[in-house]
Design a protein around this nucleic acid. Structure first.
Lengths: 330, 330
DNA sequence: TCCCTTCGTGCAACCGCTTGCACAAATCAT
DNA sequence: ATGATTTGTGCAAGCGGTTGCACGAAGGGA
């Protein structure tokens, strides 16, 4: 049916192993032979069967990216999508495919399946999957966690942005701008990165501590903000767990005629493209998702190639100052 | 090294072909034998090598989703991510992997590579890739276009939402609400779906025609809106090509103190989660991305399984009425 | 009871490529 | 010039499954 390495070999008048060597460049081949092989490949429009190649070499040539999203919302999550873009770019540069799978436990996205059935040569995992049981099944199979695992973090490889530092920066900036009663709004309190952000908030905050965790939705952030802002002596600033929470907060402020940034200052994590189009524009803790994805992929490939030991990479965040914290009119 | 089908066969006291048949359920096997095989598999923690399986069966067990995104922005595009979520779900239900690749022309994302090297059994393509040259190389390889191709649309399989109908609905709604001078804002004029939306706008619009194409960015929509709204006799309503354009428009309205919905009505395509948190909330033409992804995947699998002929599926859109078009106070 | 199906399983040839080993030819050192 | 290397290529055994064919055993009909 399809043209195989043998067809090429026959046409070029050499053995198939020679063709294989030409393709892989793994041996010294006479320029003349090489040229004949290339000519034959061109003439026959030969494309090596990657399946056969993988089987023989024992390498699938793919990496898997596992997500743990219940709904489309989480999947289309800006953070994840941007990182994925960078991961794909790195993989492509190395000739690897990227397989995505949702649901670490479900049959299809099963981590064990992916590795034991040789579907991938390495995995990028969400922090939620890191548990002693995983460590046992995964053995020395190459993987990198995108985010900080809640446990076993020193025994795993991971790449994450420094959430604590980001929150501290946010709080300090608000304090500098004259806000004194700073609250933290949004985020599942169980999620590791939220916890770390809250800790950072607590460490930098010198005023009253108010942690307003939500269920992670914009709606819930809105409701929470609404009830808090109705009370007298409410916070005069908020560090939001993400842009979604900030949108909810902004809506609450509008409805209650609470002026931002005069009455309330806002800093939000993440840098959605729309954060510049709110009223007022949002000051944000920017996460370099491109760098995050790139570093994650690079670390994974390092581990795939030479089984390097575990390694942790912490990326710092950047504060982008915009109108939502400009208390004093300029 | 790894445990193979032969190890299982030996332990179960049968031939490896029997084990294969048990795994694939492709033949009648004595319950007793079957049980012994399962027991052996369990005992040895056997996982079939998917690579070997693919090679022997000639099926990779994966589908490829090609994207054509220059920057992370387009990749993290809400529309694409949501559809991808649904595609992945369908694939997983059928035991297929999903490989994503960016850049139809680049080496890694090369459509030809994907199919000729047997990396995937089918492809989901962006409409921009549909050209006569592609048709030639792709032959009868199963693929489905996610979106409407600009050319050859009757000779390809595709799934799309009805953009023309959506725009017509938007215009009619605006007219019903009393707006008379309706403009179309945003979108690359070269992009097929924008063209179709504009055509729908033109068909339903009974007033003056104003098409304000942009470069697709929020910033450009903002600038365009700003200059248009400064003129007297400016449009009293806009159909926006997407939520991003609407955000730009809203910002321009705010700055110029143009009241929405009193002075200007807005309908935008897409239903970002944040469209409910703008001021005022946006009336939108909702695209069922989950359905889109699902239908696309289903059609692809249908084509993979029985080489069904080309087929086109057009999904209708829904208008979600919100405050941005509520001209008369309720 | 005897012949004809149907059923359950084994045999062995692939699927298309990689790679260790072998060996002739070419290159080098002395 | 000659033995020791190095270089280029072929041979064939895998990699771990799938599957058409064959055949004995079991089941069915008359």
């Amino acid at each position: 049916m399809a043209v195989t390495i043998h067809d090429v070999a026959k046409l070029a008048g050499v053995n198939s192993s020679t063709v294989s060597r030409v393709i892989n460049g793994k041996a010294t081949i006479t320029p003349d032979t090489k040229e004949r092989v290339y000519a034959a490949m061109r003439e026959l429009d030969y494309h090596p069967n990657s399946l056969a190649r993988s089987l023989a070499s024992g390498l699938s040539g793919a990496i898997g990216v596992i997500v743990d999203a219940r709904d489309a919302e989480a999947f289309s999550n800006w953070f994840f999508a941007r990182s994925l873009f960078a991961i794909e770019r790195e993989a492509q540069a190395r000739g690897y495919q990227v397989i995505i799978a949702n649901g670490a436990q479900s049959k299809g996205g099963n981590i064990e399946t992916m590795m034991k059935e040789h579907k991938v040569d390495g995995l990028i995992l969400p922090p939620t999957t890191v548990k002693p049981s995983l460590m046992k099944t995964i053995g020395d199979f190459p993987y990198v966690v995108l985010g900080t695992p809640d446990t076993l973090s020193s025994q795993t490889s991971w790449v994450d942005n420094n959430n604590g530092q980001g929150a501290e920066m946010a709080v300090r900036h608000l304090q500098e701008m004259g806000y004194q009663n700073i609250a933290y709004l949004g985020g599942h309190e169980k999620r590791g990165f939220t916890k770390r952000r809250i800790r950072g908030y607590q460490q930098a905050n010198t005023g009253k501590e108010t942690v307003l965790a939500t269920d992670g939705t914009t709606e819930n952030a809105y409701e929470t903000a609404l009830s808090v802002l109705k009370k007298t002596g409410h916070p005069d600033a908020f560090v939001c767990n993400d842009n979604l929470a900030a949108f909810g907060l902004l809506k609450a402020c509008r409805e209650l005629r609470v002026h931002v940034p005069r009455d309330v200052g806002i800093v939000a994590f993440d840098n959605y493209p729309l954060a510049e189009y709110t009223d007022p524009q949002l000051t944000i803790v920017d996460i370099d998702t491109a760098m995050l994805g790139e570093q994650t992929a690079q670390l994974l490939f390092k581990r795939i190639e030479n089984r390097a030991g575990n390694q942790q990479i912490m990326l710092s965040t950047t504060l982008v100052k915009r109108a939502s914290t400009e208390r004093k009119a300029r």
